Structure formats: structure tokens, C-alpha cells
Simulated assay, not measured.
Amino acid sequence: MEIHDKYVFGRDKVESKRLDSQHRLLVKVTGNTLIHPTIPTEQIRSVADIATGTGIWLEDVSQFLDTPHIQRYYHGFDISSDQFPDNPGSIHLSVHDLTDPFPREHWNRYDLVHVRLLVAALEEYEYRAAITNIYNILKPGGYLQWEEIDEETYISKDNPVIWELRRCFDYSLTTEGKCFQASAKVYQESQIVGFVDVERLAYDSHQNPDLRLDTDKRLAAIIRTLYARLLWRSGQVDGEEAAARKAEALIELHLGLCDRGCSPSVKLMRVVGRKPFAASL
């Protein structure tokens, strides 16, 4: 992978496994709400998932919505097909960049469009185009659900690991022209584009103490992958090996704090909005 690849993470089997584990954790963080409760699931007949990766969110949603005698359509889009499942079953998959308009056959097609974790992928100026493109493929009355782990997650009064992650991510993403305040940006741009009933919600893993070990492991994985990658990409260290060494030192500090009962939480931000019934393209 090139240092300036738009996608920060890798796309190998190890990374796909990490994505699937992360998905399962984030679903638990939201109280097992794959779809926000304000979205009327009985009306959903077609679902799109942007930056679908391994397609695991669509797979779970298709099982959650499964109803006898009702046929539904599921479509996952990603900028690369490298992590698409070999046997997607009834799920359709396409390579597409969210910042480009979708093919016309997708316009006005979906009751729900889901997006997750593009904070390290989209440049700040691209959010307006991305949200406009989502607006266009939603049916009038259809819903957007966009989830991010961004600036709001990396806030702590007393954890030096979180302080360092926040410093690194803010510096690195700003250097690349990206927006660390991703959920706030989505909330703002969604209203400008024309979505109504827009909400920005926060979920915290500390609400479920049983998630502590999973969140500890997830943060260690983020340090080993995203933190190390951004250190290198932004020129804060001299090469991949130096980035890996710094990441391992931070993981050691993190795990030591966890052993002493100082486990940080995972906070997931979720923006939900509806395309007006009277919307026109």
C-alpha cells in the first residue's frame, strides 16, 4: 500500500478480521441497535451500505430484517473490492467512490443508507459531495445513518494514551486535509444538503462494563494500525519501523493502565437524518 493511499488501513485478511471484530464491538456499544430505533424498519425494502468492507453490517442487517414473504434488496459499495466476501449470498456488491455520483440506476432506490468510519478517508471538502450523493440514492422519506469514531472519542482527563492518540490523529488528519470532527461535519452538511429530523447521538462503552476487555483489545489494535500508519504518513517519525516501535511502546503503556483499572471507553457517534418526502433531485 502506498503511503498516500486514500484508505489508511490495509486490506489483507488480518485487517478484515479486525474489521469484523470491531463491527461486533460497535454494535454492542450501541446497545445492539444495528438500525437506530427511530428508523421504521417495517418500511425498509432496500438498504445500501457505504464503505462496506467485508459486508458484515449488511449481513447482520439482512438477518435482522428477515421476514417471511417480504423480499428486500441489499447493496454494498466500497472504493475497493479487496475485502468483499467470496460468497456474499443475496447481497450485491459494487466498487464505487462515495465522492462520485452513483450510477443513475441507484437514484431514488434505497430506504436506508448506512455509512461507518470514514473519518480517516474523506477530505473535509468531500463531505458535501458525499452526502449529496447519498441523498440522491435515497427514496423520498428514506433514512441516512452515519457512524463515526472521531474527536469526541478521544477525550480524557487523566489518560496519557488517549492524549497522545488525540494529538496524533488531530495533527495527522489535519495535515492530510481531513476532518477529525467528522460526526459534527456530517451533522452540519446533512442539514445543508436537505436532510430533515437530523440527530447526532453518542454511545459510550462504559454503559456496559462487560465490554471492557473488548474495548481494551480494540484500542490496542487501533494503536498498532491507525496510530502507527498516521505517524508515518504525516512525517512524525522516520519510516514504518520507527512508527511500529512507537506504537508498541504506547500499547505497553495502554495495557499497563488497563491492568490498573484505567481502561478508556469507546464512544461511537451516530448521525441520523431523513430525506424529505417532497424531495426532488
Rank of each mutant, 00 (worst) to 15 (best):
S190A: 15
E2W: 04
V271K: 03
L281I: 13
L253P: 02
A202E: 12
Q236E: 11
Y171M: 11
R128K: 15
R200I: 02
R116W: 08
H92Y: 11
Y171C: 11
L165K: 07
Y110D: 04
R212C: 14
Q71E: 15
H23M: 05
Y227F: 15
V47Q: 03
S156R: 05
G89N: 11
K185I: 05
Y127F: 15
L250M: 07
L201V: 08
D111K: 07
D150A: 07
K157E: 08
D158Y: 09
L26N: 07
W107K: 00
L257A: 00
K139W: 08
E241D: 15
R24D: 14
S263Y: 10
V113W: 08
Y143H: 15
L25W: 01
T38P: 00
P37Y: 04
V272S: 02
K6T: 07
I56H: 01
V237L: 04
N87P: 00
G194C: 13
S156W: 05
C168Q: 11
L58F: 09
R18A: 05
E105Q: 13
A279Q: 10
V27Y: 10
E252S: 07
H106P: 00
A120F: 09
E123I: 04
T30G: 11
S190P: 02
G76K: 09
N32P: 01
R167S: 15
E151L: 12
R233F: 01
P276S: 11
L230E: 11
E252I: 07
V266N: 00
R166M: 04
W163H: 14
L165T: 02
H75A: 15
D197V: 05
R233E: 00
V193I: 15
A221L: 08
I91V: 13
L122H: 01
F195A: 08
L65T: 04
V237Y: 00
P264R: 09
H206C: 08
E2M: 09
Y135C: 12
F277C: 09
G235W: 10
S21K: 14
K6I: 10
S280R: 15
Y110V: 06
R116A: 14
G256M: 06
P85C: 10
T99L: 03
H4S: 04
V271D: 00
L98N: 03
T174Q: 14
T33G: 00
V198D: 01
H4K: 11
W146P: 03
C262G: 02
S16T: 10
S172N: 04
G31H: 09
L211S: 05
F102M: 02
A278T: 14
P209V: 13
D158W: 04
I155P: 00
K185F: 02
S62G: 02
D20M: 05
E176D: 06
E199V: 12
I223A: 03
V27F: 03
K6E: 11
Q191I: 14
D214L: 15
Y154R: 08
H69N: 14
I222T: 13
S280Y: 07
E105A: 01
A121H: 11
Y73T: 12
I131P: 00
M1A: 12
D78C: 10
K17G: 05
M269L: 07
Y143D: 01
V113Q: 05
K28I: 06
R229V: 03
A184C: 08
V113N: 06
R18F: 01
D82T: 10
R128E: 12
K217M: 07
L211A: 02
S172T: 12
G256E: 03
T99R: 13
I50P: 10
L138C: 02
T225C: 02
